[in-house]
Design a protein around this nucleic acid. Structure first.
Length: 545
RNA sequence: GCGCCCGUAGCUCAGCUGGAUAGAGCAGCGGACUUCUAAUCCGCAGGUCGCAGGUUCGAAUCCUGCCGGGCGUGCCA
């Protein structure tokens, strides 16, 4: 049990004993100001009405009757806060627990229904851009955080390698391919073609593999094959990039399979049967307004083809049918209109409203020399995720992405990112880890064995460090609950600060064996948490820098 | 027009879902290495938390209305 939770129990018991009142919630928090104790609670203030007494008086009474080996001192402060100072034993107990858990510290055992986390899901029409990078970094880190917090997570990538976009890619490649042989290739709409350099690259690879074969055969027959080659090429490229960025998936789900399995047809049929669709103007509409949507949506167009909504709805129903308790979709903010209608469709199918949880990732605004860079995949004016990693490295890229909430728009100043990559806060955190590794290198002791039974009073810097260390499980759980990744980097930076401060003031490798053992224990504990935290972000914890 | 999201230091962002004097990092200024890594530490300066009301012991946080920005509002995905 966390220290907060234990204190909350003590306070609740004291309240019951002295006032005969059972409080539903006791809020214990860590004050910003260390002179306000290790922990504080506002029960006396928050429940002034229940007690019908002066909050300071209540707090005083409670502080007096609070007797526990974990509390060294409890006092009243301000308008009626109770401030707690923990005993050294309680803090060392926490550190020992941490060291015993090792890499498992802050990780909860798996519980509950599995979550299907869908992220990135970019269609294979080109390389990943810096915008996609944010999705990969956020999605993968979120998966790691959820897993650490005990959620079972299945990571899925949904893609479509058929359809209009792909045909255009095929034509784009075919045109470049023909050019290599100084021949022409008729295209349906020259303005709609993809223009990036990668299109030529695909064309060259196509020539390498197939020679001029596709020019000999009929163009209509060749095009689908070229398109397939191009998509495969792009998909491999994307997977390589994801791999490099340390973002992994359990499954790549192809939209096509929904048609092949009949899932889309079944969906339409079931909705018809349930009476949630109607025909109008030759199209088939979903009565989504009956389920909270702004307007009804077309499922089958008047030309008989499906809108994107049909397979998407079938896909989400499939997620539900596979037994997942929650589906988390990580989508771009330009899909903001999407959640209400999919949710409406799901509810129409009898699936609980809260099954779908959509996290919208804000766009990445690229800046170069103070100017916004217009990004267009079609026009080929984009910066790829790979290029970014080439410039700043994988660690910096991943850390930079998740440092701010996915919900806020991000200004990505390329010049600044490259120029300042040396000063990136990720190095600040990594440096703390490397410093500790260096100490253990000199000490000739392994972090595991170091200071198995630390005891004694803690200096202010040591106390601050321990309190920060023991906060890690709470941070992880909180991040998982909120589906936010950025609390982790924020936490790691604070932890690194606490360590650097400790390191500056206290020498670890001293003669006194007790003191040395105690400080080594703190180093070992810090190392464990830094590594575990960085692991959640997919960032390396270097032994040396 | 309507619906969501955002507005915190010069810049990039935190602020634990109502607490005590609003915090970091960059950038600026000034200090600290004969001692475990100075990619560090300490100090100074920097703020009408977009504006105006409201709720209460207490508001950056919750409610309402404005102002400013973004996104959505397709038989596109």
């Amino acid at each position: 049990m966390s220290l907060e939770a234990r204190l909350a129990v003590l306070v609740r018991e004291a309240v019951r004993e002295r006032y005969g009142v059972e409080l539903a919630e006791v809020h214990v928090e860590r004050p910003n100001d260390p002179t306000h104790g290790d922990f504080a609670t506002n029960v006396a203030l928050a429940n002034a009405r229940v007690f019908r007494r002066n909050p300071r008086e209540v707090a005083g009474t409670l502080a007096e009757s609070l007797a526990s080996p974990i509390v060294e001192k409890a006092e009243v402060a301000g308008p009626g806060f109770m401030n707690f100072w923990l005993s050294a034993e309680a803090l060392w107990d926490g550190v020992r627990e941490l060291l015993e858990a090792g890499e498992g510290y802050g990780r909860r055992a798996a519980h509950g229904k599995p979550i299907l986390l869908e992220y990135v899901s970019v269609n294979p029409t080109g390389p990943m851009t810096v915008a996609h990078g944010r999705h990969a970094a956020y999605g993968d880190s979120l998966a790691r955080i959820l897993e650490a917090a005990g959620r079972r997570v299945f990571r899925e990538y949904y893609f479509n390698d058929g359809g209009n976009q792909i045909r255009l890619l095929g034509e784009s490649v075919a045109l470049r391919y023909a050019e290599l042989y100084e021949e022409s290739w008729p295209v349906s709409d020259p303005d709609a073609l993809y223009r990036g350099e990668y299109v030529r690259e695909i064309a060259r690879d196509l020539r390498k593999e197939a020679g001029g074969r596709y020019l000999q055969m009929g163009r209509e027959k060749a095009l689908p094959e070229i398109g397939a080659f191009a998509t495969r090429w792009c998909m491999e490229e994307i997977e390589r990039t994801l791999n490099r960025a340390r973002a992994t998936f359990d499954d790549y789900f192809n939209e096509k399979s929904l048609y092949e399995s009949g899932a889309v047809e079944d969906l339409i049929w079931d909705l018809k049967k349930a009476g949630h669709v109607y025909e109008s103007e030759g199209a088939l509409w979903l009565r989504s307004t009956a389920f909270g949507d702004d307007k009804d949506r077309v499922l089958v167009k008047s030309d008989g083809s499906y809108t994107y909504m049909a397979p998407d709805l079938a896909y989400h129903r499939d997620k539900y049918q596979r037994g997942f308790g929650t589906a988390v979709d990580v989508l771009g903010a330009d899909h903001a209109g999407y959640p209400p209608r999919i949710r409406a469709g799901l509810v129409a199918l009898g699936i609980p409203e809260d099954f779908l949880d959509v996290e919208l990732v804000r766009l990445v605004k690229l800046m170069r020399e103070g100017e916004q860079v217009k990004v267009s995949k079609r026009a080929g004016t984009f910066v790829t995720f790979d290029e970014l990693m080439d410039e700043v490295g994988e660690d910096v890229a991943r850390y930079f992405y998740v440092r701010s909430s996915h919900k806020t728009e991000m200004n990505f100043d390329l010049d600044l990112a490259i120029r300042q990559s040396d000063e990136n806060p990720v190095f600040y955190v990594q440096y703390a880890h490397a410093r500790i590794a260096s100490i253990f290198g000199r000490a000739g002791a392994s972090p595991k064995k170091a200071g198995e039974f630390p005891t004694g009073d803690l200096a202010p810097e040591e106390r601050a460090l321990v309190l920060e260390l023991l906060d890690f499980p709470r941070v992880v759980e909180n991040a998982a609950e909120r589906r936010e990744v950025h609390p982790v980097p924020t936490y790691l930076e604070t932890l690194a600060t606490r360590f650097h401060q400790f390191y500056t003031v206290h020498r670890v490798l001293v003669e006194d064996e007790v003191v040395r053992g105690r400080r080594l224990a703190l180093c070992a504990a810090t190392k464990v948490v830094l590594r575990a935290g960085l692991e959640l972000l997919g960032v390396e914890a270097p032994e040396k820098m």
